[in-house]
Computed example of a mutant assay.
Amino acid sequence: MKLGYHLGYWSAGPPPGALDTVKEVERLGFDSVWTAEAYGSDAFTPLAWWGSSTSRIRLGTDIVQMAARTPTATAMSALTLDHLSGGRFVLGIGASGPQVVEGWYGQPYPRPLARTREYVDILRQVFAREAPVTLDGDFFQLPHPGGAGLGKPLKPTVHPLRADLPIHLAAEGPKNVALAAEICDGWLPMFFSPKSDAFYRKALAEGFARPGARHTTLEDFEVPASIPVILRDDVEEAADLIRPSLALYIGGMGAKQANFHFDLFVRLGYEETAHRVQELYLAGHKKDAVAAIPTSLVEDTALIGPAEKIKDELAAWEETVITSLLLRGDTSTLTAVAEILS
């Protein structure tokens, strides 16, 4: 597996020392660096700012939210970053969830897979620049059929550096994972576990087998996965650093009736735990929700503990569909982990 660095999205402000860390991971030979967005910092700007101090490492978004921008606006940012980086950009997109899409962006959420298909269609047209971009879809119409009635099909003025600029899709459910395999160049999993490998291989195979699929096997398809790696002698101490994030996503990152992260952990075999964590979190008992996360759940979705333990467990990850391990942490942590994993 290749190594990447995942900066994520900001909390109250920009992460301290981010530029120095980006420079260091490039020096260490990392393959890629990735940013994200939720409802605070955006993904494109930090990637351009910190990426401008690099020369080799690939620059990816994991992820930009589709509801945040029209497909052509996303394509414009992708074209621009690809030119500025000399062809190092990877566009990672995702549908997010109904709470964010409808609450933050004011966009309707239903039928996200159909919307994604149209979104990617438009991106491909822009990147190809073979003809003016048009689509008469259920969600996107180019040109707009109403308004002033003066809409005109257009091509981007910028000539793409790469017509095949890679598009990766974030997905958790089997239908969306299959869609990633069918129409994209990579899949961006969240909370991946080696125990789920067979489940996801089946979903990817379904997408590869569809008529007109962009890829037909895993041979030339990427699966970069953001995996927490915490190097500590004390396993429980390491798990405690991850439990709050797991409680947030299982319990509060989505409505009770529509939380895709919750569903993922149910499939992983933690149904009782997921219900308990969600119940506590939504009731405002966040500390209790954190405490309800068992160490086994953390270990299923992360690499934690002493160096030898991490080395031993890494073998199971190397047998999965994952092609890149995206690490988080400061410079010293990443340097130590890279040495363990090399």
Rank of each mutant, 00 (worst) to 15 (best):
P98R: 15
F127S: 11
G149D: 10
L150C: 05
G86Q: 09
A114G: 12
G86S: 07
E118P: 06
Y109K: 10
R124Q: 12
W104A: 14
L123R: 08
D82G: 09
Q141N: 14
D82C: 09
A95K: 12
Y105E: 00
G103H: 06
P110G: 12
G146H: 12
D82V: 09
V120W: 10
A148V: 01
P145N: 07
G86F: 06
G87H: 03
A148F: 12
G103F: 01
Q141S: 14
L91I: 02
G146Q: 11
R111T: 03
R111I: 00
G87C: 04
H83W: 14
Q107I: 13
G86M: 06
R115D: 00
P132Y: 11
P143S: 04
P143C: 02
F139M: 06
E102R: 11
S96L: 02
P132G: 12
G92V: 05
L91G: 04
E118C: 07
L142Q: 01
P112V: 01
P143K: 03
P108T: 10
E130N: 14
V133P: 07
P98Q: 13
G86W: 01
P112G: 06
A131M: 02
Q99A: 14
D82T: 08
D138S: 14
P143H: 01
E118D: 04
Y109E: 07
G106S: 10
E130T: 13
G87Q: 03
